[in-house]
Every structure is written in structure tokens, then in C-alpha cells.
Design a protein around this nucleic acid. Sequence first.
DNA 1: TGCCTGCGAGACAGACCGTTCTAGTTGGTT
DNA 2: AACCAACTAGAACGGTCTGTCTCGCAGGCA
Lengths: 204, 204
Amino acid sequence: MSSESESRPSEARSRLLDTATRLFYAEGIHAVGIDRIVAEAQVTRATLYRHFPGKNDLVVAYLNEVDQALRDQADKAIAAGLPAADTIAAISKSIAQGIKSPGFRGCAFLNAAAEYPDPQSPVHKAVLAHRQWLLETITELLVKIHRTGAEPAARHFVMMRDGAMAAGCLFDPALVSETFLRGVERLLQIYAGTDYSEPERRSH
Amino acid sequence: MSSESESRPSEARSRLLDTATRLFYAEGIHAVGIDRIVAEAQVTRATLYRHFPGKNDLVVAYLNEVDQALRDQADKAIAAGLPAADTIAAISKSIAQGIKSPGFRGCAFLNAAAEYPDPQSPVHKAVLAHRQWLLETITELLVKIHRTGAEPAARHFVMMRDGAMAAGCLFDPALVSETFLRGVERLLQIYAGTDYSEPERRSH
DNA sequence: TGCCTGCGAGACAGACCGTTCTAGTTGGTT
DNA sequence: AACCAACTAGAACGGTCTGTCTCGCAGGCA
């Protein structure tokens, strides 16, 4: 009972998760059945249900895998020790690069949320958890640039990211990436230069 | 053969389409079966299949209905005859208002695209058609403000709209709306003031 | 009166869904 | 040698999916 549960990623299990990740992302979650997954992963149904209690758990595991990959990517950019603005630029470039990659099919989390609207659903909760991490991570970076107004600026960043990720597979990815990067550029300029958050009172 | 096909919206058909619209939007397309729709619309399966060849056609009809509603809304804002910047502000307020409305579940088209990734699918094509209309409409309005650079500015607007619509049901809708409106405000300021599009060459 | 259309009620087919089950095989550990 | 865990193989479960079918009824129109 010592080493198996941790040290053995279980060849079959990782093949299962990789296949599920590929198919869920490319074709949608409800559109992909258990049969397809076990067939393409070259395992049997019994094996799947030994590693995952049910399809829902496999979906959550899929999102967790994507989540971990994005966290690793962000951590790497942060660990480089560059100024916060450069770190955000680097993260933005990663995002733009992803959008332009072949096989890009939008944000795995936004797509999953479209299929799992129920806030009680574990899948939906996994989406919310990832998004909270993203918003907090960007906020922490922006705080390093300017003490005030980091939160609205981070929301602005995430809004542009969401839009770019959503449109990236519905429009020319190169143009979408360009629009996103220019938006980030302007955001950083404005945020670093002036009071970003000051909610200047207007007419009305 | 003269009047029936046009003048009769067919009570049953409109009930069917309304129910489908409500359920598809609220719960997702693949998650809602024919049985649910016919039951809640209080018609029989035979009636559904007399009006729609299949579920796919019903989905397309659903998207067309939403599309038409949004076009009407935009046409009304344009017909008011205000300056283009004010028209865009009005459209933006409509969008923000929608995000804050109870029952908001994101953009019907982005959600549909998440479930229908295949570009050949009629559903996917309906999504692309709507998005092209939106981009062109915004571009035409921006052209009235500034002769050059309207297209990248319109892409920026649509990017922010997409992000706001996607996040509106995954985060505090009030904050999302506020972030969106402030983004539009800044976009209009920058676009009206300076050369927006000039792709200033950078170090790279 | 007779006809045609729209719709209700419900059975039915065939496929696929997620899930559970039994039985047999392999390979590494003790 | 004995054992155990992971795996393969495949049947079978009940349920739901889209789509088709038959039958009967009501109302408008010629």
C-alpha cells in the first residue's frame, strides 16, 4: 500500500485521461461518449471505472489537468523574475500563441461552462475555481505595478482574454491574437501611467 | 396556398420555438432532449417534426430568433439617429443590461459554438453569420467616427463584448458590466482622439 | 355533405448513453 | 508456489436519445 497509489501513474489511466482531454476539448463534452474514449485509449470500460467513479469525475479530471498546465505555465513566467509588466506581457504572448496554434478550440473552461450551467455541478465549480485563480494571479502581478486599481485592471485583462479565447476559433486567429496583444499593451500603458481605477464621475 | 404559409405563425410552432429557445439557452443544447421540449411546449412529437425536419433545424431556428432579436435591438439604436459614438454607447448599455438581467446565461452563439465545433455544421455556420453581422455593424458605426482604423477598433469592441458575455454568468454580473462599459468608454476616447490603428512598429 | 389540414395521443424502432457485471489473463511480489 | 492487483474481453442493464408510425378528432372550406 506504500508506493503504488502514488508512484504509479498507471499507464492505462494516463492514456485514458489524455484521450479524454483531447476528445472533450476538440469535440465537446456531451458529444463524446464513454465508448469513444475507451476505444481510442485502448482500454476497456472496466478499467475506466476502476480509475474514475463516473464520467463526471473524468470531466473534472480533464479540467484539472488543463488547469494545472496553465498554472505551471504562469508559474514559469513568474519565476523568471522579470518586472511584473513583462511577466504579464509574457503570459499574454503565451495566450496569443495558444490561440494561433493548430487545433485551438477556445477556452476549455468557458466551453465546459457552456455545457454545465448548473452552479452546483462539480464541473461548473472547477471552472469557477480556475477563473478565480487566474483573476487573482493577474491581480497580484498588477499590484506590483501600481498599488491601487489593480482589481479593475485585472478584470479588464481577463475580459479581453476571455473574448480572445472565445473568438479565436470563430475568426482569424492571427487577427484575434493581434487585437488581444494590442489591448493588453494599451492596458499596461494606461495602468502604469495614470490612475487606472479612479471612477471619474461623469454627467448624468 | 396563398396565405397559410405566411400569415399563420401556427400557435403550436411558436410555442415550440419559444420553449426550445428558453431551454436551449438555459441548459445547453445537447442537454435538452426533444421530449422535454414537446412536453413543456404542450405539443406532441408529431407536431414538432411537422414544423422542423429535425432537432438541428430547431437549433438553427433558435439561433435565428436570437439573432433577429439582437438585430432589431441594434437597428432601433441606429435608427435613433444619434452620433455614432452615442449609438455604440447605447448598444453597449443594452449589452450590459442583458448581462445583469436575471437568467443571463452568456452569449447564445458562443455557447452554441462550444457545443458545435464542426465548422461544417449548420449550427456553427449560424454562429459565424451572426458574428460577422455584429462585427460589420460595429465597424460601420466606427467608420462614421474616424475614417481609418475602424476595423481593429471594432475587433477590440467585439473582443470585450465576447469576454463580458462569457464571464457574465461566471462572475459578479455588475462588476463584469462595469468593466465592459469602462472598456468601451476608453476605446471610444482613444479611437476618437488619436490614430487608433497605426501599428507602431516596436522592438520585437 | 365531404374533404383536407393541423394537431393530440401514444406506440414503436434503433441507436446510443453511462454503468455494472462475470470471467479470464498477465506480471510482479513475497 | 501462491498471491494479488491491474488489465482485457465482452455481455448485459435500464434508461434516454432522435425520429417514424398509426389512429382519431376537430374545424374550416368548397
